[in-house]
């Protein structure tokens, strides 16, 4: 049995142009053997969710450094739910104070990563989540 590759959409929602983190993380996930789709900049939540469904991804990882995380994460989360894609893990990182991370996790967003996190932490987290939640889905 060949283990299926984990599919991740790395997204930059909103008007924020800071893509250093998104690109570094996308490259690290790819180097760790995942299939990575990068949306490019200035995407609306609708565009991100549409791309996630079209690409049938396991994980949506958003990078937000604009301070708009309390608007954009819930909007993507709700759109995923509306589209029946609540089996998709929504995670991400950026300039996000820890209290906001906690609030977002209470709403159903996965773990969020702040500045200085090694990319290996993000890789390990996604792998672990996938093994627990999705690994058996597409077998047979």
């Amino acid at each position: 049995m060949v283990e299926r590759k984990i599919r991740v959409l790395v997204g930059k929602p909103g008007l924020d142009g800071h893509d250093r983190g998104a690109k570094v993380v996308a490259a690290a996930l790819r180097d760790a053997g995942m299939e990575v789709i990068y949306t490019g900049l200035h995407q609306t939540p609708e565009q991100i969710v549409q791309a996630a469904i079209q690409e049938d991804v396991d994980v949506v990882a958003l990078s937000i450094l604009s301070g708009a995380h309390m608007t954009l994460f819930p909007r993507v989360l709700n759109l995923l739910r509306e589209e029946g894609a609540d089996h998709v893990l929504l995670t991400g990182g950026g300039i996000i104070p820890s209290e906001d991370m906690e609030k977002l996790q209470e709403m159903g967003v996965g773990q969020l990563f702040g500045p200085g996190t090694p990319t290996t932490d993000a890789v390990a987290y996604i792998r672990e989540w996938f093994t627990k939640n999705r690994a058996g889905d597409d077998e047979g």
Binding site: G14, L15, G67, A68
Partner: peptide, 18 residues
């Protein structure tokens, strides 16, 4: 703010949350 940097008015839909 980002809407101004991108040339959007504050009441544009794309500006929400920013």
């Amino acid at each position: 703010d980002f809407p101004t940097l991108m040339g959007y008015d504050s009441d544009d839909r794309r500006s929400e949350g920013e």
